[in-house]
Design a protein around this nucleic acid. Sequence first.
DNA 1: AACGATCCCTGTTGGC
DNA 2: TGCCAACAGGGATCGT
Length: 289
Amino acid sequence: MGTVTGPSLEAFLPELPEVEITRRHLEEAMVGRRLERVRVTHTRTARYNATTGEVESRLSGRRVDTVGRHGKFLVIGLDDGYTMVAHMGMSGRFSVAAKTDEEAPHTHFVAVLDDGAEVRFIDPRTFGFIAVFDEDELSDSALSRLGPDAWVDPPSVPILMRALNGRTAPIKALLLDQGPIAGLGNIYADEALHLAGIHPLTPGGGLDATEVAGLLLAIQKVLSEAIESGGTTLDDLAYLLPDGQAGDNLSRLGVYARTDEPCLKCGTPVERIVVRARSTHFCPRCQAL
DNA sequence: AACGATCCCTGTTGGC
DNA sequence: TGCCAACAGGGATCGT
């Protein structure tokens, strides 16, 4: 992983690998710790059933038992049975900081731990959120509608076949949906489809067992490589991993953000189309319809 | 039910 | 050079 120095601006879009790396940092910092004081300073950061003040009071004084993840959601178990659920949206990042560290712009959440460290949530575009749910609220939340986690609980070929059966929507859209499989965002959906040689507009129900098996393998490969290399840090915004480092996965991308550049497998220029209002990159030769 | 369009938000970029 | 519209995207919501 590259350490960022000076004024260079780097970003990453938090998808499963980036959320998993964040989870590991937060687990190290938070498990067994008590949240002494919690501050939520942006109304959009507290979402669903709770105001900023309610999130603060539900978290303050609680001890963290577990830090888990399902898809792109962080799932933090508290000692009173409540669950803190966090989503980093598109611009959110967590930072584990010392009390004396200067607060970054757009810091909307600060938890002071009983060892003096602070867990901060920084989110310029406020697409992310932090919620605290009891059991009923949790079972009624978006978490309950997620498919199996693409990394720790990947669906088998028959399970994914069944989820895609009869679906006419493009496979790209279904990968982003989080229902058939949870954790892929725009970058890794494009990368997995490219690696599997599947055109993004292929109707989900039109994939045969061989193609679904290949897609699942491709998903495992792009996710594991991204996690190992520290996630994908793009160079247009200033978002970093919790320890201030940038991920190194950018150079591994085959199609994402490579419009008109040669496909690394065959040299054909990468094409960009829009699917469900999301930019979609693919090689027209390796991924023929 | 499934699908697609629209909205939220702001730092950055590209065109004039 | 300066201004402003366009762009980026995860998930919620709404209309068909």
